Amino acid sequence: MSMYDGRSSASDPAQPSNARALEDALAPFEEGLRLQLRSADDILRDAAARKQMAKRSKTVLPVLALGALCAGLVWLDPAYQTETVSTAIGQRATVHLHDGSILTLNTGSQVTVAMHLRSRRMTLVHGEALFDVAHAPIRALERPFKVTANRTMVHDIGTVFNVRTRDTGVDVSVLHGRVRVEAEDGMSRELNAGQAAATRDGHLSSADVRSDAADWRDGRLVLNGTPLRDVVEEIQRYRQTPVILQEGSIGDIRVSGQFELSRLDQLIDLLPSLTPVEVQRRPDGSVRIDARPVRR
């Protein structure tokens, strides 16, 4: 006695006819299925294309990242070289900068030099300095040259110019070319060769500015009817020990002449013969200048 389990054997004669019936039933949908379902060749081609794109991305992305980094550095304008130069009291020095500019420092001065990718920035901490600015042969390669000092910015426009710090501002004078002087309040003024300007307390000032940069650079102190109080101030810049001037109208006495900066003690000794004053030298090296008593 045998039992039927509901499964067809391999020799079931109905199986081929069932397959044919399924193919006949799917025949009307063959074209649609072919459009919906990708062939093995299509799949292989897409895989190869994706692999090629991945290789390109590995090359392009680092290049793009490097380009973005370079653009960021140019925009940020970082300093790639910084140095500080200074002179002691009574000393003068000439410094040749890497860009070809020449920096001349007067007595007791300090300048911080910062070379940036897109600019050149100087800071006159104190004292006086003459800037002879070098310029690129091609305008597109030109980097701005700026000097900051005592709440003032000086922009070079093809120039040799002098900057001197004062108690509350700076004096700026131009030997050649042109500069723009900008005070902290945003007001500015352009100066041409032979002109000078001053700032005080962050504002442009009407203070009288003596343009004597060429004189001190050559080691000379040139006086042309200069008040004695101003003469003493200049002498003091080159001396360690004090020069004390009696208070009062003695400071209004005018002095003229040309003297060597390296021999200012001779000027002190000559004052009694040039003006009605007396000079007293003290053991500590200081000097006192008083009005000569009127003889009766």
Rank of each mutant, 00 (worst) to 15 (best):
residue 284 D to W: 00
residue 244 I to W: 03
residue 295 R to W: 10
residue 198 A to D: 00
residue 236 Q to W: 05
residue 181 V to A: 01
residue 151 R to V: 06
residue 150 N to T: 11
residue 154 V to C: 05
residue 179 V to K: 01
residue 11 S to R: 10
residue 19 A to H: 07
residue 138 I to F: 13
residue 228 L to N: 04
residue 36 Q to A: 15
residue 144 P to G: 06
residue 186 G to T: 04
residue 95 V to C: 08
residue 35 L to M: 12
residue 161 F to W: 00
residue 160 V to S: 05
residue 153 M to W: 12
residue 253 I to A: 10
residue 43 I to D: 11
residue 118 R to T: 12
residue 122 M to Y: 00
residue 275 T to H: 02
residue 188 S to N: 07
residue 196 A to D: 04
residue 89 I to A: 11
residue 229 R to S: 15
residue 150 N to M: 11
residue 33 L to Y: 10
residue 66 L to A: 15
residue 121 R to V: 14
residue 95 V to H: 11
residue 137 P to M: 10
residue 210 R to A: 12
residue 210 R to F: 08
residue 154 V to H: 00
residue 285 G to Y: 04
residue 201 D to V: 04
residue 261 L to Q: 02
residue 291 A to L: 11
residue 46 D to V: 13
residue 152 T to F: 02
residue 216 W to H: 08
residue 20 R to H: 10
residue 252 D to N: 15
residue 205 S to E: 02
residue 181 V to R: 02
residue 29 F to Y: 14
residue 283 P to I: 07
residue 99 D to W: 02
residue 78 P to L: 05
residue 56 R to A: 15
residue 257 G to D: 01
residue 249 S to Q: 11
residue 44 L to P: 06
residue 83 E to K: 09
residue 1 M to A: 14
residue 78 P to W: 08
residue 5 D to Q: 09
residue 242 P to G: 03
residue 252 D to W: 10
residue 215 D to K: 07
residue 4 Y to V: 13
residue 4 Y to Q: 15
residue 97 L to R: 03
residue 47 A to K: 14
residue 132 D to C: 06
residue 2 S to M: 14
residue 246 Q to L: 05
residue 230 D to G: 06
residue 112 T to C: 09
residue 1 M to Y: 13
residue 135 H to D: 00
residue 6 G to H: 06
residue 237 R to L: 02
residue 227 P to T: 08
residue 53 M to C: 13
residue 155 H to E: 15
residue 11 S to M: 09
residue 181 V to L: 06
residue 36 Q to C: 10
residue 22 L to V: 13
residue 230 D to T: 07
residue 201 D to T: 06
residue 131 F to Y: 04
residue 5 D to C: 03
residue 261 L to R: 00
residue 72 G to I: 01
residue 115 M to L: 13
residue 52 Q to L: 15
residue 136 A to T: 07
residue 288 R to Y: 12
residue 263 R to V: 07
residue 276 P to I: 01
residue 277 V to I: 05
residue 27 A to I: 00
residue 291 A to G: 12
residue 173 S to A: 12
residue 291 A to E: 08
residue 202 G to W: 03
residue 78 P to M: 08
residue 138 I to S: 13
residue 30 E to N: 13
residue 274 L to R: 01
residue 212 D to E: 11
residue 170 V to F: 01
residue 23 E to W: 11
residue 241 T to A: 14
residue 141 L to P: 05
residue 81 Q to G: 08
residue 16 P to F: 10
residue 217 R to N: 14
residue 39 S to H: 04
residue 114 A to Q: 12
residue 60 V to N: 09
residue 188 S to P: 01
residue 166 R to Y: 10
residue 119 S to Q: 04
residue 9 S to E: 13
residue 274 L to V: 00
residue 190 E to F: 05
residue 150 N to V: 09
residue 3 M to V: 15
residue 292 R to H: 12
residue 218 D to Y: 08
residue 81 Q to H: 12
residue 178 R to G: 07
residue 74 V to A: 14
residue 214 A to F: 11
residue 265 D to W: 06
residue 132 D to F: 04
residue 195 Q to M: 08
residue 1 M to I: 13
residue 85 V to E: 02
residue 171 D to Y: 07
residue 68 A to Y: 00
residue 142 E to I: 07
residue 197 A to M: 01
residue 96 H to S: 15
residue 187 M to I: 12
residue 280 Q to H: 14
residue 49 A to L: 15
residue 163 V to I: 05
residue 135 H to E: 03
residue 100 G to R: 03
residue 152 T to V: 06
residue 267 L to R: 03
residue 69 L to V: 10
residue 17 S to A: 13
residue 141 L to H: 12
residue 171 D to W: 06
